[in-house]
Nucleic acid binder design. Structure first.
Lengths: 211, 211
DNA sequence: GGACACATGTAACGGGTTACATGATTTC
DNA sequence: GAAATCATGTAACCCGTTACATGTGTCC
Protein backbone atom coordinates (compact mmCIF):
# COMPACT_ATOMS: atom_id res chain seq x y z
CA UNK A 1 0.00 0.00 0.00
CA UNK A 2 1.43 3.23 -1.25
CA UNK A 3 2.23 6.12 1.06
CA UNK A 4 -0.56 8.64 0.75
CA UNK A 5 -0.12 12.05 -0.79
CA UNK A 6 -1.41 15.33 0.63
CA UNK A 7 -4.34 15.19 -1.77
CA UNK A 8 -5.35 11.87 -0.24
CA UNK A 9 -5.59 13.55 3.11
CA UNK A 10 -7.58 16.37 1.61
CA UNK A 11 -10.18 13.79 0.58
CA UNK A 12 -9.92 11.94 3.84
CA UNK A 13 -10.27 15.17 5.75
CA UNK A 14 -13.39 16.13 3.91
CA UNK A 15 -14.79 12.71 4.79
CA UNK A 16 -13.96 13.31 8.42
CA UNK A 17 -16.71 15.95 8.57
CA UNK A 18 -19.40 13.52 7.47
CA UNK A 19 -20.11 10.77 4.94
CA UNK A 20 -20.53 11.79 1.34
CA UNK A 21 -21.23 10.31 -2.03
CA UNK A 22 -18.32 10.74 -4.38
CA UNK A 23 -19.97 13.41 -6.44
CA UNK A 24 -21.09 15.55 -3.53
CA UNK A 25 -17.78 15.14 -1.79
CA UNK A 26 -15.85 16.26 -4.81
CA UNK A 27 -18.09 19.25 -5.42
CA UNK A 28 -17.66 20.29 -1.83
CA UNK A 29 -13.91 19.92 -2.01
CA UNK A 30 -13.84 22.10 -5.05
CA UNK A 31 -15.79 24.76 -3.22
CA UNK A 32 -13.57 24.58 -0.18
CA UNK A 33 -10.11 24.03 -1.57
CA UNK A 34 -10.11 25.44 -5.05
CA UNK A 35 -8.11 28.54 -4.25
CA UNK A 36 -5.37 26.98 -2.18
CA UNK A 37 -5.32 23.32 -3.14
CA UNK A 38 -6.68 22.93 -6.65
CA UNK A 39 -7.15 19.45 -8.05
CA UNK A 40 -9.04 18.16 -11.07
CA UNK A 41 -12.26 16.45 -10.05
CA UNK A 42 -11.58 13.37 -12.13
CA UNK A 43 -8.50 12.50 -10.12
CA UNK A 44 -10.35 12.51 -6.84
CA UNK A 45 -12.43 9.47 -7.74
CA UNK A 46 -9.11 7.66 -7.93
CA UNK A 47 -8.16 8.86 -4.47
CA UNK A 48 -11.42 7.61 -3.04
CA UNK A 49 -10.69 4.16 -4.38
CA UNK A 50 -7.20 4.17 -2.92
CA UNK A 51 -8.44 5.27 0.47
CA UNK A 52 -10.90 2.43 0.54
CA UNK A 53 -8.25 -0.08 -0.48
CA UNK A 54 -6.12 1.18 2.36
CA UNK A 55 -8.99 0.64 4.77
CA UNK A 56 -9.24 4.31 5.69
CA UNK A 57 -12.77 4.59 4.37
CA UNK A 58 -15.64 2.24 3.70
CA UNK A 59 -18.44 2.67 1.22
CA UNK A 60 -22.00 1.48 1.26
CA UNK A 61 -24.18 1.33 -1.79
CA UNK A 62 -27.34 3.36 -1.42
CA UNK A 63 -29.94 2.87 -4.10
CA UNK A 64 -32.15 5.78 -4.91
CA UNK A 65 -34.49 5.16 -7.76
CA UNK A 66 -32.69 3.14 -10.35
CA UNK A 67 -29.39 4.81 -9.66
CA UNK A 68 -27.09 3.32 -7.12
CA UNK A 69 -24.27 5.27 -5.65
CA UNK A 70 -21.67 4.63 -3.02
CA UNK A 71 -21.61 6.61 0.16
CA UNK A 72 -18.17 6.85 1.67
CA UNK A 73 -17.51 6.96 5.39
CA UNK A 74 -14.23 7.44 7.21
CA UNK A 75 -13.10 4.54 9.40
CA UNK A 76 -11.41 4.53 12.77
CA UNK A 77 -8.12 3.88 10.99
CA UNK A 78 -8.88 6.76 8.66
CA UNK A 79 -9.32 9.18 11.53
CA UNK A 80 -6.09 8.02 13.02
CA UNK A 81 -4.22 8.41 9.74
CA UNK A 82 -5.62 11.89 9.30
CA UNK A 83 -4.58 12.95 12.76
CA UNK A 84 -1.10 11.59 12.19
CA UNK A 85 -0.77 13.46 8.94
CA UNK A 86 -1.79 16.67 10.65
CA UNK A 87 1.23 16.36 12.92
CA UNK A 88 3.62 16.37 9.97
CA UNK A 89 5.04 19.57 8.56
CA UNK A 90 3.20 21.30 5.74
CA UNK A 91 4.98 21.80 2.45
CA UNK A 92 6.32 25.21 1.54
CA UNK A 93 3.45 27.12 -0.02
CA UNK A 94 3.84 27.75 -3.65
CA UNK A 95 2.55 30.36 -6.06
CA UNK A 96 2.41 30.15 -9.82
CA UNK A 97 1.79 33.56 -11.33
CA UNK A 98 2.83 34.07 -14.89
CA UNK A 99 1.40 37.58 -14.76
CA UNK A 100 4.37 38.54 -12.64
CA UNK A 101 6.67 36.90 -15.15
CA UNK A 102 5.14 39.17 -17.74
CA UNK A 103 5.71 42.20 -15.55
CA UNK A 104 9.33 41.20 -15.15
CA UNK A 105 9.65 40.96 -18.92
CA UNK A 106 7.43 43.90 -19.73
CA UNK A 107 10.19 46.08 -21.13
CA UNK A 108 10.21 43.77 -24.13
CA UNK A 109 6.65 44.78 -24.86
CA UNK A 110 4.86 48.07 -24.48
CA UNK A 111 3.27 49.78 -21.54
CA UNK A 112 -0.10 49.14 -23.14
CA UNK A 113 0.56 45.43 -23.21
CA UNK A 114 1.58 45.53 -19.57
CA UNK A 115 -1.61 47.32 -18.63
CA UNK A 116 -3.61 44.67 -20.43
CA UNK A 117 -1.85 41.95 -18.47
CA UNK A 118 -2.58 43.74 -15.23
CA UNK A 119 -6.18 44.13 -16.15
CA UNK A 120 -6.52 40.38 -16.61
CA UNK A 121 -4.98 39.85 -13.19
CA UNK A 122 -7.43 42.35 -11.83
CA UNK A 123 -10.47 40.59 -13.20
CA UNK A 124 -9.19 37.22 -12.00
CA UNK A 125 -8.92 38.76 -8.58
CA UNK A 126 -12.42 40.18 -8.76
CA UNK A 127 -13.69 36.65 -9.22
CA UNK A 128 -11.82 35.51 -6.15
CA UNK A 129 -13.11 38.38 -4.07
CA UNK A 130 -16.69 38.01 -5.15
CA UNK A 131 -16.49 34.34 -4.31
CA UNK A 132 -15.22 35.36 -0.88
CA UNK A 133 -18.21 37.67 -0.58
CA UNK A 134 -20.57 34.84 -1.43
CA UNK A 135 -18.93 32.36 0.91
CA UNK A 136 -18.68 34.91 3.69
CA UNK A 137 -22.38 35.61 3.50
CA UNK A 138 -23.14 31.91 3.56
CA UNK A 139 -21.07 31.56 6.69
CA UNK A 140 -22.98 34.38 8.32
CA UNK A 141 -26.37 33.06 7.26
CA UNK A 142 -28.77 30.57 8.77
CA UNK A 143 -27.32 27.61 6.94
CA UNK A 144 -23.84 28.40 8.19
CA UNK A 145 -21.43 25.54 8.91
CA UNK A 146 -21.72 23.90 12.30
CA UNK A 147 -20.17 25.76 15.22
CA UNK A 148 -17.25 23.39 15.39
CA UNK A 149 -16.43 24.00 11.77
CA UNK A 150 -16.86 27.73 11.47
CA UNK A 151 -13.95 28.46 13.75
CA UNK A 152 -11.47 27.02 11.29
CA UNK A 153 -13.31 28.35 8.30
CA UNK A 154 -13.03 31.86 9.64
CA UNK A 155 -9.26 31.52 9.59
CA UNK A 156 -9.27 30.21 6.04
CA UNK A 157 -11.69 32.91 4.97
CA UNK A 158 -9.52 35.55 6.55
CA UNK A 159 -6.54 34.30 4.59
CA UNK A 160 -8.30 34.10 1.28
CA UNK A 161 -9.83 37.53 1.47
CA UNK A 162 -6.54 39.16 2.43
CA UNK A 163 -4.86 37.18 -0.31
CA UNK A 164 -7.20 38.63 -2.90
CA UNK A 165 -7.00 42.12 -1.44
CA UNK A 166 -3.23 41.93 -1.59
CA UNK A 167 -3.44 41.48 -5.34
CA UNK A 168 -5.88 44.33 -5.67
CA UNK A 169 -3.75 46.71 -3.65
CA UNK A 170 -0.67 45.72 -5.57
CA UNK A 171 -2.49 46.46 -8.80
CA UNK A 172 -3.48 49.88 -7.53
CA UNK A 173 0.06 50.73 -6.44
CA UNK A 174 1.41 49.47 -9.73
CA UNK A 175 -1.04 51.45 -11.79
CA UNK A 176 -0.10 54.57 -9.87
CA UNK A 177 3.58 53.84 -10.38
CA UNK A 178 3.05 53.31 -14.07
CA UNK A 179 1.22 56.59 -14.38
CA UNK A 180 3.84 58.47 -12.48
CA UNK A 181 6.68 57.14 -14.58
CA UNK A 182 4.82 57.85 -17.78
CA UNK A 183 6.77 60.83 -19.01
CA UNK A 184 9.93 61.06 -17.02
CA UNK A 185 13.51 60.36 -17.96
CA UNK A 186 15.06 56.92 -17.52
CA UNK A 187 17.23 58.41 -14.86
CA UNK A 188 14.37 59.74 -12.85
CA UNK A 189 12.40 56.57 -13.19
CA UNK A 190 15.29 54.50 -11.90
CA UNK A 191 15.40 56.80 -8.91
CA UNK A 192 11.70 56.31 -8.46
CA UNK A 193 12.04 52.53 -8.67
CA UNK A 194 14.68 52.58 -5.99
CA UNK A 195 12.54 54.71 -3.77
CA UNK A 196 9.69 52.24 -4.14
CA UNK A 197 12.03 49.48 -3.03
CA UNK A 198 13.42 51.50 -0.17
CA UNK A 199 10.02 52.62 1.04
CA UNK A 200 8.75 49.07 1.00
CA UNK A 201 11.71 47.88 2.99
CA UNK A 202 11.34 50.64 5.52
CA UNK A 203 7.61 50.11 5.82
CA UNK A 204 8.09 46.53 6.89
CA UNK A 205 11.24 46.95 8.90
CA UNK A 206 13.72 45.31 6.55
CA UNK A 207 17.30 46.42 7.05
CA UNK A 208 18.50 48.75 4.32
CA UNK A 209 22.13 49.30 3.45
CA UNK A 210 23.71 46.17 4.80
CA UNK A 211 25.13 44.78 1.62
CA UNK B 1 7.33 22.77 -34.24
CA UNK B 2 5.36 22.58 -31.03
CA UNK B 3 3.52 25.55 -29.60
CA UNK B 4 5.65 26.95 -26.81
CA UNK B 5 4.63 26.86 -23.17
CA UNK B 6 4.85 29.76 -20.73
CA UNK B 7 8.05 28.31 -19.32
CA UNK B 8 9.61 28.56 -22.77
CA UNK B 9 8.91 32.26 -22.75
CA UNK B 10 10.35 32.56 -19.29
CA UNK B 11 13.63 31.24 -20.70
CA UNK B 12 13.34 33.31 -23.83
CA UNK B 13 12.58 36.38 -21.78
CA UNK B 14 15.63 35.91 -19.63
CA UNK B 15 17.65 35.63 -22.84
CA UNK B 16 16.17 38.89 -24.03
CA UNK B 17 18.13 40.75 -21.37
CA UNK B 18 21.45 39.45 -22.59
CA UNK B 19 23.21 36.29 -23.79
CA UNK B 20 23.91 33.63 -21.21
CA UNK B 21 25.46 30.24 -20.92
CA UNK B 22 22.92 27.63 -19.94
CA UNK B 23 24.15 27.30 -16.41
CA UNK B 24 24.27 31.00 -15.66
CA UNK B 25 20.93 31.56 -17.30
CA UNK B 26 19.28 28.89 -15.24
CA UNK B 27 20.79 30.10 -12.00
CA UNK B 28 19.58 33.58 -12.77
CA UNK B 29 16.10 32.35 -13.58
CA UNK B 30 15.97 30.54 -10.30
CA UNK B 31 16.91 33.73 -8.48
CA UNK B 32 14.38 35.78 -10.33
CA UNK B 33 11.42 33.50 -10.72
CA UNK B 34 11.60 31.00 -7.92
CA UNK B 35 8.80 32.47 -5.85
CA UNK B 36 6.25 33.00 -8.57
CA UNK B 37 7.23 30.66 -11.38
CA UNK B 38 9.17 27.74 -9.94
CA UNK B 39 10.68 25.20 -12.32
CA UNK B 40 13.26 22.49 -11.82
CA UNK B 41 16.59 23.47 -13.29
CA UNK B 42 17.02 20.24 -15.17
CA UNK B 43 13.97 20.89 -17.31
CA UNK B 44 15.25 24.23 -18.48
CA UNK B 45 18.10 22.71 -20.46
CA UNK B 46 15.40 21.00 -22.47
CA UNK B 47 13.66 24.31 -23.10
CA UNK B 48 16.87 25.84 -24.35
CA UNK B 49 17.23 23.09 -26.89
CA UNK B 50 13.66 23.53 -28.06
CA UNK B 51 14.06 27.27 -28.42
CA UNK B 52 17.10 26.77 -30.59
CA UNK B 53 15.34 24.21 -32.76
CA UNK B 54 12.55 26.71 -33.22
CA UNK B 55 15.08 29.32 -34.33
CA UNK B 56 14.27 31.67 -31.49
CA UNK B 57 17.77 31.48 -30.12
CA UNK B 58 21.20 30.64 -31.45
CA UNK B 59 24.15 29.31 -29.52
CA UNK B 60 27.84 29.74 -30.05
CA UNK B 61 30.44 27.53 -28.49
CA UNK B 62 32.94 29.45 -26.42
CA UNK B 63 35.93 27.53 -25.23
CA UNK B 64 37.45 28.59 -21.97
CA UNK B 65 40.30 26.42 -20.84
CA UNK B 66 39.47 22.86 -21.74
CA UNK B 67 35.78 23.29 -21.12
CA UNK B 68 33.54 24.34 -23.92
CA UNK B 69 30.15 25.75 -23.29
CA UNK B 70 27.41 27.17 -25.41
CA UNK B 71 26.40 30.77 -25.09
CA UNK B 72 22.81 31.34 -26.09
CA UNK B 73 21.58 34.51 -27.74
CA UNK B 74 18.06 35.50 -28.63
CA UNK B 75 17.35 35.98 -32.34
CA UNK B 76 15.21 38.54 -34.11
CA UNK B 77 12.50 35.90 -34.40
CA UNK B 78 12.87 35.20 -30.69
CA UNK B 79 12.27 38.83 -29.77
CA UNK B 80 9.23 38.87 -31.98
CA UNK B 81 7.85 35.70 -30.45
CA UNK B 82 8.41 37.05 -26.97
CA UNK B 83 6.63 40.27 -27.75
CA UNK B 84 3.72 38.39 -29.21
CA UNK B 85 3.44 36.19 -26.17
CA UNK B 86 3.37 39.26 -23.96
CA UNK B 87 0.21 40.39 -25.71
CA UNK B 88 -1.64 37.21 -24.76
CA UNK B 89 -3.55 36.92 -21.51
CA UNK B 90 -1.78 35.58 -18.44
CA UNK B 91 -3.09 32.44 -16.79
CA UNK B 92 -5.07 32.72 -13.62
CA UNK B 93 -2.54 32.82 -10.79
CA UNK B 94 -2.54 29.78 -8.66
CA UNK B 95 -1.58 29.03 -5.08
CA UNK B 96 -0.81 25.66 -3.56
CA UNK B 97 -0.81 25.87 0.21
CA UNK B 98 -1.40 22.70 2.12
CA UNK B 99 -0.91 24.57 5.37
CA UNK B 100 -4.31 26.10 4.80
CA UNK B 101 -5.73 22.67 4.14
CA UNK B 102 -4.42 21.68 7.53
CA UNK B 103 -6.03 24.69 9.13
CA UNK B 104 -9.33 23.76 7.52
CA UNK B 105 -8.99 20.25 8.95
CA UNK B 106 -7.46 21.28 12.25
CA UNK B 107 -10.42 20.26 14.37
CA UNK B 108 -9.41 16.67 13.68
CA UNK B 109 -6.14 17.31 15.43
CA UNK B 110 -5.27 19.42 18.44
CA UNK B 111 -4.61 23.10 18.87
CA UNK B 112 -1.00 22.24 19.53
CA UNK B 113 -0.72 20.53 16.19
CA UNK B 114 -2.26 23.52 14.50
CA UNK B 115 0.21 25.85 16.13
CA UNK B 116 3.05 23.67 14.90
CA UNK B 117 1.71 23.87 11.37
CA UNK B 118 1.48 27.63 11.61
CA UNK B 119 4.98 27.87 12.93
CA UNK B 120 6.29 26.02 9.87
CA UNK B 121 4.43 28.45 7.63
CA UNK B 122 5.97 31.26 9.60
CA UNK B 123 9.51 30.07 9.13
CA UNK B 124 8.92 29.44 5.43
CA UNK B 125 7.76 33.02 5.21
CA UNK B 126 10.80 34.28 7.08
CA UNK B 127 12.96 32.75 4.38
CA UNK B 128 10.97 34.55 1.70
CA UNK B 129 11.19 37.86 3.50
CA UNK B 130 14.88 37.63 4.21
CA UNK B 131 15.44 36.84 0.56
CA UNK B 132 13.46 39.96 -0.27
CA UNK B 133 15.70 41.88 2.08
CA UNK B 134 18.77 40.56 0.34
CA UNK B 135 17.46 41.23 -3.15
CA UNK B 136 16.16 44.65 -2.17
CA UNK B 137 19.57 45.66 -0.92
CA UNK B 138 21.20 44.41 -4.09
CA UNK B 139 18.81 46.52 -6.13
CA UNK B 140 19.71 49.57 -4.09
CA UNK B 141 23.43 48.92 -4.24
CA UNK B 142 26.10 49.86 -6.74
CA UNK B 143 25.71 46.68 -8.75
CA UNK B 144 21.99 47.23 -9.15
CA UNK B 145 20.27 46.11 -12.36
CA UNK B 146 20.42 48.51 -15.28
CA UNK B 147 18.04 51.45 -15.19
CA UNK B 148 15.79 49.92 -17.79
CA UNK B 149 15.42 46.79 -15.75
CA UNK B 150 14.97 48.14 -12.28
CA UNK B 151 11.65 49.74 -13.11
CA UNK B 152 10.01 46.36 -13.63
CA UNK B 153 11.91 44.73 -10.84
CA UNK B 154 10.59 47.26 -8.39
CA UNK B 155 7.06 46.15 -9.24
CA UNK B 156 7.94 42.50 -8.80
CA UNK B 157 9.77 43.25 -5.59
CA UNK B 158 6.80 45.18 -4.30
CA UNK B 159 4.56 42.22 -4.98
CA UNK B 160 6.81 39.65 -3.40
CA UNK B 161 7.40 41.59 -0.24
CA UNK B 162 3.72 42.29 0.27
CA UNK B 163 3.00 38.67 -0.50
CA UNK B 164 5.29 37.55 2.29
CA UNK B 165 4.02 40.20 4.68
CA UNK B 166 0.47 39.07 4.00
CA UNK B 167 1.36 35.63 5.32
CA UNK B 168 3.05 37.08 8.35
CA UNK B 169 0.12 39.32 9.21
CA UNK B 170 -2.30 36.46 8.74
CA UNK B 171 -0.24 34.37 11.12
CA UNK B 172 -0.33 37.12 13.71
CA UNK B 173 -4.10 37.56 13.42
CA UNK B 174 -4.58 33.82 13.57
CA UNK B 175 -2.41 33.41 16.62
CA UNK B 176 -4.35 36.13 18.36
CA UNK B 177 -7.63 34.49 17.38
CA UNK B 178 -6.43 31.15 18.66
CA UNK B 179 -5.43 32.66 21.96
CA UNK B 180 -8.70 34.47 22.36
CA UNK B 181 -10.78 31.38 21.71
CA UNK B 182 -8.67 29.31 24.04
CA UNK B 183 -11.08 28.94 26.93
CA UNK B 184 -14.47 30.02 25.76
CA UNK B 185 -17.60 28.02 25.02
CA UNK B 186 -18.29 26.64 21.53
CA UNK B 187 -21.16 29.08 21.32
CA UNK B 188 -19.03 32.07 22.03
CA UNK B 189 -16.30 30.96 19.70
CA UNK B 190 -18.77 30.55 16.85
CA UNK B 191 -19.90 34.10 17.53
CA UNK B 192 -16.30 35.20 17.46
CA UNK B 193 -15.67 33.39 14.19
CA UNK B 194 -18.60 35.14 12.61
CA UNK B 195 -17.43 38.49 13.82
CA UNK B 196 -14.03 37.83 12.24
CA UNK B 197 -15.75 37.14 8.96
CA UNK B 198 -18.03 40.14 9.24
CA UNK B 199 -15.23 42.49 10.21
CA UNK B 200 -13.14 41.31 7.30
CA UNK B 201 -15.97 41.87 4.91
CA UNK B 202 -16.70 45.31 6.25
CA UNK B 203 -13.05 46.27 6.23
CA UNK B 204 -12.79 45.64 2.52
CA UNK B 205 -16.24 46.81 1.52
CA UNK B 206 -17.84 43.47 0.72
CA UNK B 207 -21.62 43.47 0.96
CA UNK B 208 -22.93 41.71 4.03
CA UNK B 209 -26.38 40.28 4.33
CA UNK B 210 -27.33 39.79 0.73
CA UNK B 211 -27.84 36.06 0.73
C1' DG C 1 -38.49 13.48 -27.19
C1' DG C 2 -34.47 16.41 -26.80
C1' DA C 3 -31.54 18.89 -24.01
C1' DC C 4 -29.13 19.42 -20.08
C1' DA C 5 -27.47 18.75 -15.50
C1' DC C 6 -26.41 14.88 -12.44
C1' DA C 7 -23.16 11.24 -11.40
C1' DT C 8 -19.12 8.22 -11.94
C1' DG C 9 -15.58 6.97 -13.82
C1' DT C 10 -11.12 5.63 -17.12
C1' DA C 11 -7.47 5.71 -20.56
C1' DA C 12 -4.17 8.24 -22.63
C1' DC C 13 -1.24 11.89 -22.59
C1' DG C 14 2.03 15.25 -21.11
C1' DG C 15 4.54 18.20 -18.32
C1' DG C 16 7.72 18.36 -14.87
C1' DT C 17 10.52 16.32 -11.26
C1' DT C 18 13.92 13.07 -9.28
C1' DA C 19 17.72 10.77 -9.59
C1' DC C 20 21.49 9.78 -11.85
C1' DA C 21 25.69 10.36 -15.09
C1' DT C 22 29.72 12.77 -16.49
C1' DG C 23 33.62 15.50 -16.65
C1' DA C 24 36.10 20.00 -15.52
C1' DT C 25 37.60 23.37 -12.35
C1' DT C 26 38.70 25.14 -8.06
C1' DT C 27 39.97 24.74 -3.15
C1' DC C 28 42.31 22.80 0.75
C1' DG D 1 44.69 14.24 -4.53
C1' DA D 2 40.16 14.54 -2.14
C1' DA D 3 36.27 17.16 -1.86
C1' DA D 4 33.32 20.46 -3.36
C1' DT D 5 31.31 23.06 -6.79
C1' DC D 6 30.81 24.24 -11.56
C1' DA D 7 28.45 22.82 -15.66
C1' DT D 8 25.46 20.13 -18.67
C1' DG D 9 22.65 17.07 -19.45
C1' DT D 10 19.25 12.53 -19.84
C1' DA D 11 16.21 8.73 -18.74
C1' DA D 12 12.78 7.11 -15.96
C1' DC D 13 9.06 7.99 -13.50
C1' DC D 14 4.99 10.08 -11.45
C1' DC D 15 1.40 13.06 -10.71
C1' DG D 16 -2.27 15.07 -12.45
C1' DT D 17 -4.99 16.79 -16.34
C1' DT D 18 -7.73 16.37 -20.64
C1' DA D 19 -10.76 14.20 -23.10
C1' DC D 20 -13.79 10.89 -23.49
C1' DA D 21 -17.43 7.22 -22.15
C1' DT D 22 -21.65 6.03 -20.03
C1' DG D 23 -25.93 6.03 -18.00
C1' DT D 24 -29.73 8.51 -15.04
C1' DG D 25 -32.93 11.98 -13.57
C1' DT D 26 -35.31 16.15 -14.84
C1' DC D 27 -37.13 20.01 -17.24
C1' DC D 28 -39.70 21.92 -21.26
Amino acid sequence: MMPLKPVSYAVLGQLAFRPWSAYELIKEMKRNFHYFYPRAESGLYEELKKLEEAGLTISKVKTKGKKERKVYTITRAGKKALKEWLTTDPEQYWLEFDGLLRVFLSRFGTKGILRKTLSKVSSDTDILISLAEKVGNEYLSDNAPAQKEIEQRAIVFDFLLHYGIMFKEWLIRTEKYLNETENISPNQSAVKAKSVIRNNMNQFGLKVGTY
